[in-house]
Design a protein around this nucleic acid. Structure first.
Lengths: 198, 198
DNA sequence: GTCTATAGAAGGATAGAC
DNA sequence: GTCTATCCTTCTATAGAC
């Protein structure tokens, strides 16, 4: 089955990008880890590394969004959901030796000033995360006008949490990020319940 | 003067790391941009790319901390200082076409799972930023116990702001980060003024 | 001690056998 | 259409001329 090799290449590349970034991951390294012949990359992705990279970014963005939404939904209310996301992130960091973090953050910073096609792909992923999170915040009682900037802040805290926690190999930073996110969300919900708000 | 070449290599490398990251920056690219002979790198940094990289990380960390502290000090009080930092970051992003951001963030994510020496260097830089920011927050009236996690959150919002703003080539994310940071700091100061707090 | 030339490995990409 | 062998470039690093 041809699509099986293709999928294996995508999975492997996503994994290597998350660990070592875009420039840090070689095509030979990918096919070796995916047990695929070298030519398969150019068979399935005629545009080479960039085409493969773009598909991996968009696909990882979708998959990670689904994962986070599933964890978020475990919470009974908004604050519980946010707490579950940050607690889950800290748990995954600990369990994987601080390697499994955001699948696109490293790539996003790497390509931001050097590859416009890939930069755009990372921007689209972040935008879809922001939109989805804002929608959840609104549904949970955050005043509509405040939902989007709050969603951005929550995602930034998560990304910052990954960055500092991976560097320090310690979840203190992710814990602090979660506490800050919870405080911001709780305050926004409180404001939403006041008669004057919105 | 020999130390002039050395300094030029350090400055150039810092600039290239910020734009293209660690793996994305080649030694030949560095000497070309620094107008230095190739051998100079190994003359001044016998440990090669890693030794140069470590010194650049620690040096950039110090310099950026000084820059941020200078901007922070422009504010009259704590909230004003934080606002100045995020406004300044947004301004620099706009003015440089979204290339001049945090000097070590890209490198930090790249090396977190692949080079322990450099990972440790980035961790040390983040830690020194956290310590300094926490000290300022305490001096500005934030209860001592809350200063450190708050400092972490503020730095994470700044880093997340750089990441999302560079990807989108838009300062909306940095503006949202600043607003969130201000809200968190203002709330902490308010809590510090309550008699029951601390 | 400043600089050039080059080694040896790894990078992305391609051609063509089967 | 699956895979191998190879091309050319670039990488880090070193040797040695001057």
């Amino acid at each position: 089955m041809q699509s099986d090799t293709r999928r294996r290449i995508l999975d492997t590349t996503a994994d290597l990008f998350r660990r070592h970034g875009y420039t840090g991951t070689g095509l030979k390294q990918i096919v070796a880890a995916a047990n695929a012949p070298f030519g398969s990359i150019y068979h399935f992705f005629p545009g080479g590394k960039q085409e493969l990279g773009e598909e991996v970014i968009r696909r990882s963005g979708r998959m990670y969004q689904e994962l986070v939404e599933a964890v978020w939904s475990q919470g009974d209310d908004l604050v519980d959901g946010v707490r579950a996301v940050f607690d889950g992130a800290a748990e995954v960091l600990r369990a994987t030796g601080y390697v499994d973090a955001c699948p696109i953050a490293t790539v996003a910073l790497e390509v931001a000033s050097s590859n416009d096609t890939l930069r755009r792909a990372t921007a689209d992923v972040f935008e879809s995360w922001v939109t989805a999170a804002a929608e959840r915040l609104r549904a949970g009682g955050v005043p509509s006008r405040r939902a989007r900037p709050l969603a951005i802040a929550v995602i930034q805290l998560l990304e910052g949490g990954f960055m500092l926690s991976r560097a320090a190999q310690d979840t203190e930073a992710m814990d602090a990020a979660g506490a800050a996110a919870i405080e911001l969300v709780a305050a926004a919900v409180r404001r939403g319940k006041l008669p004057a708000a919105r």
